[in-house]
């Protein structure tokens, strides 16, 4: 009996192997699929768009969204494996080179805004506003082991321990914050509570009277009652600006607001389902973005992107280098120039 089982198992293996081999050819998708991957920060927005798009197409078109991260997403995108890639930052030079090698041309489409929010415990009444210079004093690598108390930063602040919470080194948030505050991407002190999971940071900031941390706005907004977001002063004459929808839209919350993008491959956009998806995304983004509590771009930004997409304007407006403090007006000016 055992022998029969084993024999049956063996024949099943070979049968499967043969089927697998023969299926390889015929497995090329008959159903139309839009495949999307990339940043997990952009994921909630893309998920909402994908859900609505599938509904509007009565499930005749399939949309899949992955979360490989901005960098991981671009790797797949440049290999031509995905149709659309989400990014919490613009595409970088090295990634552009990769795409060039495989002949993947892309449309750069700004989707939403994020405001990195510097938050403290609501019990901390010593400050309402912090300057970028002070943030730099706190977060630069030289501060490690030296700036340990609030009073070390500013003598008028309380003589209490300073407990820091920030993004882990693999996150796009970390790259952007260090670039904007310290002046060099990935350059940060190491003695703070770091996590890739923003919810961990939220809990840390809420429960610690001496805390200071930075998180994406979408993670701050639902907890606004339990945390205090500090206004940020860039020191360029705008004074203290609070992170809020209005200020981000007005382009004054600088340099900590950053655009979120999605990139569509030119080749994939020749397929009607991908083209329709991109158009759907740009036409219906605002209410969906608001629903998942992210910050949309100003209404006028979307038709501009749509026009660029339909005209076939390729490439990035960022030149492949990390950049901070690009306001929406800047972004749109650059886009319309192309």
């Amino acid at each position: 009996m055992q022998a029969k089982k084993v024999a049956a198992g063996l024949s099943a293996v070979s049968a499967l192997a043969i089927t697998v081999a023969s299926m390889q050819v015929s497995a090329v998708a008959q159903t139309r699929t839009v495949s999307i991957d990339g940043s997990s920060t952009v994921f909630p927005v893309m998920e909402a768009i994908a859900e609505e798009f599938q509904k509007s197409k009565k499930n005749q078109v399939r949309v899949t969204v992955g979360i490989s991260g901005t960098g991981g997403g671009f790797k797949k995108f440049c290999r031509g494996e995905t149709d659309i890639s989400n990014g919490s930052r613009p595409i970088l030079t090295a990634e552009i080179e990769d795409c060039k090698k495989t002949g993947v041309n892309f449309f750069e489409l700004p989707l939403a805004f994020d405001a990195l929010t510097v938050a403290v415990s609501p019990k901390n009444t010593a400050l309402e506003c912090i300057s970028i210079a002070d943030l730099k004093k706190i977060w630069e690598p030289a501060a490690q082991g030296k700036v340990m108390r609030w009073s070390d930063v500013n003598p008028s602040w309380p003589n209490r321990p300073l407990k820091l919470y920030g993004a882990g080194a693999d996150s796009g948030t970390f790259d952007y914050f260090t670039e904007a505050v310290v002046g060099k991407a990935k350059s940060s002190r190491g003695d703070y509570t770091a996590s890739e999971d923003d919810n961990v940071l939220v809990q840390g900031i809420e429960n610690d009277v001496n805390s200071l941390g930075y998180i994406p706005f979408a993670y701050y907004a639902p907890h606004a009652a339990k945390m205090k977001a500090l206004a940020v002063d860039w020191g360029k004459g705008q004074g203290c600006v609070k992170p809020s929808l209005e200020n981000v839209l007005a382009g004054t919350y600088n340099p900590l607001s950053r655009p979120l993008f999605f990139y569509a491959s030119q080749k994939a956009s020749a397929k009607p389902e991908v083209k329709e998806f991109v158009e759907f995304a740009l036409k219906n983004a605002v209410p969906l973005i608001k629903e998942v509590k992210y910050l949309p771009l100003p209404d006028r930004a979307y038709p501009l992107s749509l026009a660029r997409f339909q005209k076939g304007v390729l490439g990035t407006v960022f030149g492949g280098v990390p950049e901070v403090g690009v306001s929406i007006d800047d972004l749109m000016k650059r886009e319309s120039k192309h």
Binding site: T19, F43, E47, A50, R62, T64, V65, I67
Partner: peptide
């Protein structure tokens, strides 16, 4: 996640049993 599992997917893999010959399909594997 490394090999590229998806996160949002709102459809099911192809059914293993089909109405046409040979009635068994391995399409779901792909």
């Amino acid at each position: 996640i490394t090999i590229g599992a998806l996160t949002f997917i709102a459809f099911l893999p192809a059914p293993p049993i089909t109405s046409q010959f040979p009635f068994i399909s391995f399409e779901w594997l792909f």
